[in-house]
Design a protein around this nucleic acid. Structure first.
Lengths: 210, 210
DNA sequence: TAGATTGTTAATCGATTAACAATC
DNA sequence: TAGATTGTTAATCGATTAACAATC
């Protein structure tokens, strides 16, 4: 990666999308692509694609373009997808269960190793081979296990308290589905999946399309 | 709204967040706030807040600030949240079911009126009082009912085909959870909730935090 | 070698921030 | 009125696009 210049979050948010397109091309057995061809498929300018990729290194070759397999792998490495991640889900209601069941993650090296809830009716339930544990045991669990990612699927009122517990338990990333912003220590990565915000910008666009 | 200048999508994506903060303030019975006070709470600059809001009108008052209730209501109207939306869910697996169960939406005027799937084991299942219908009946259903929003919770391979059916059926918005980009007619609003992209940018940040 | 296409610098465009006159 | 704070213009900053020399 290009030494110590900070890479803008606009670029980073495009990386997973590049990877998806490269994966599709890979499946179609295409083995190389130029920035201009990719720009047609993805709707970015060729210039932007070259700029984006060059933040991380010169993956292309003049006169040839980019080798798809190599670029795909490189982006996977940049995104940290060549590693395994142990995750826990806090809040085992519908959304938590849906995420636990989303087995597609496994292929990518994401493994849900525990689920928690405070609701006695959910504790003990087994979702996709994972038993829902009592939330009171979370600190203990985090101490005993090396958890990488905590997924918050609680309501908004519990989100900050859960985030604090996860931080104390030294997760390195938090994926927050609660419709609320949470504060976390500087060294913890936080990604929000605010579905309600997403829905609300959909209605905005519905209303304001011609 | 300020006549016909196009409002940037950066602004629009901040609106639901403004609304959430205003809702919290409202619940705390605060009745006015200045852009500088809000800037502290939200982490935007006061200048940005005033710029953002002024895209839609002068909601504030010099020397006073913004009336929270009024601003909250105005943003709701701008986002189209003073209306009711009929939604259908296509793909009734775990994620589709989780969304169907997410009753919080009801309060906001979002109503799931049907669910669809091709899997015979899911057809007939009743989720939160909604019976999962055979996907083959979707066109018929869309003809007979005025559906505003189609929610795609299928796998990536079916997403485009579903989007086409929804478009033909004249939904005005599509909320796409499939990990794939879909193409839709110009007049249809599309919002992607690419959860895997979100997870992948989380791992990026985990890897690249000091 | 000639053609193609990158990597990279420079130019443009757009979004954010600062400043301040208007005004409640 | 004086103080506070907006609405809005101007300045800055950052991201995107264009251009082209480097090079495979």
């Amino acid at each position: 990666m290009k030494d110590h210049e900070k890479i803008s979050s606009a670029v980073i948010k495009r990386l997973p999308r590049y990877r998806r397109y490269l994966e599709d091309l890979l499946k179609k057995n295409v083995d190389r692509i130029s920035s201009s061809e990719l720009s047609i498929q993805m709707g970015y300018t060729a210039s932007q694609i070259r700029q984006d990729l060059n933040n991380f290194g010169g993956f292309g070759q003049q006169g040839y373009g980019y080798n798809i397999k190599e670029l795909y792998n490189q982006i996977g490495i940049i995104l940290g997808l060549n590693q395994e991640y142990k995750m826990i889900i806090v809040g085992s209601g519908n959304l938590g269960q849906a995420i636990a069941n989303y087995t597609h993650y496994y292929k990518e090296g994401f493994k849900v190793c525990a689920m928690f809830d405070i609701n006695p009716r959910l504790i003990g339930l087994v979702i996709n081979d994972i038993e829902v544990m009592d939330y009171n045991l979370i600190s203990e669990f985090l101490k005993a296990n090396n958890v990488d990612i905590g997924i918050i699927c609680t309501n908004k009122d519990s989100a900050q308290e859960v985030a604090d517990k996860l931080s104390e338990g030294n997760v390195s990333g938090i994926w927050n589905f609660a419709p609320m912003d949470i504060a976390v220590r500087e060294d913890i990565a936080l990604e929000n999946a605010h579905l309600s915000d997403s829905l609300h910008s959909l209605t905005y666009h519905m209303l304001h399309k011609k």
